[in-house]
Simulated assay, not measured.
Amino acid sequence: MLDGLANIAGPGLTRPNIAPEATFTAALSAASGQAVETLRNAEGLSLKALQGEADTREVVDAVMNAEQTLQAAIAIRDKIVSSYLEISRMAI
């Protein structure tokens, strides 16, 4: 299951460190925590660049990585919502 998350995320998002017997909730929590950390890193580097303390290449890499992470998070969210809607339409 985690392989699927890593494939959706692309090369910018690394696989979270989760035990194989972890629950879906734990996996999703770890992935979202890592995504937030990636976005915060890009924001911090951007602020340092504005102050003249960071290299432009580092900032561009961090922002591109954050963009890929955000796109992956949006794709995962969309899949979860569509799955929920499909399940809610099922007849019991």
Rank of each mutant, 00 (worst) to 15 (best):
L2E: 12
D3K: 01
D3H: 07
G4K: 01
G4T: 03
L5V: 04
I8T: 10
I8N: 06
A9F: 08
A9T: 06
G10S: 05
G10V: 04
G10A: 09
P11I: 15
L13T: 08
T14F: 07
P16L: 07
P16A: 10
N17I: 06
N17R: 05
I18L: 13
A19F: 08
P20D: 13
P20L: 02
P20I: 05
E21S: 05
A22C: 07
T23Q: 07
T23M: 05
T25I: 11
A26K: 00
A27G: 11
A27C: 12
L28M: 13
S29Q: 07
S29W: 02
S29T: 12
S29M: 03
A31W: 12
G33Y: 03
G33D: 10
G33I: 03
Q34Y: 10
Q34H: 00
Q34K: 07
A35V: 09
A35S: 15
V36H: 00
V36S: 03
E37V: 09
T38A: 11
L39H: 08
R40V: 13
R40F: 12
A42N: 02
A42C: 00
A42H: 02
E43W: 00
E43G: 07
G44A: 11
S46F: 03
K48S: 14
K48E: 15
Q51P: 05
Q51A: 12
E53G: 06
E53I: 01
E53K: 03
E53P: 02
E53C: 04
A54M: 04
E58N: 05
V60R: 04
V60Y: 01
D61H: 02
D61G: 01
A62K: 02
A62N: 02
V63E: 12
M64N: 14
M64E: 15
M64L: 14
A66T: 04
A66H: 01
E67A: 07
E67I: 05
T69A: 10
T69R: 02
T69Y: 06
Q71N: 11
Q71S: 12
A72I: 09
A73K: 05
A73D: 14
I74G: 03
I76K: 00
I76L: 09
R77H: 14
D78S: 06
K79Q: 14
K79S: 14
K79E: 14
S82L: 07
S82Y: 02
S83N: 10
S83V: 00
S83Y: 05
S83R: 01
Y84T: 09
Y84I: 11
L85Q: 11
E86L: 07
I87C: 06
S88R: 08
S88G: 05
R89E: 15
R89G: 12
R89K: 13
R89L: 15
M90E: 15
I92R: 04
I92L: 13
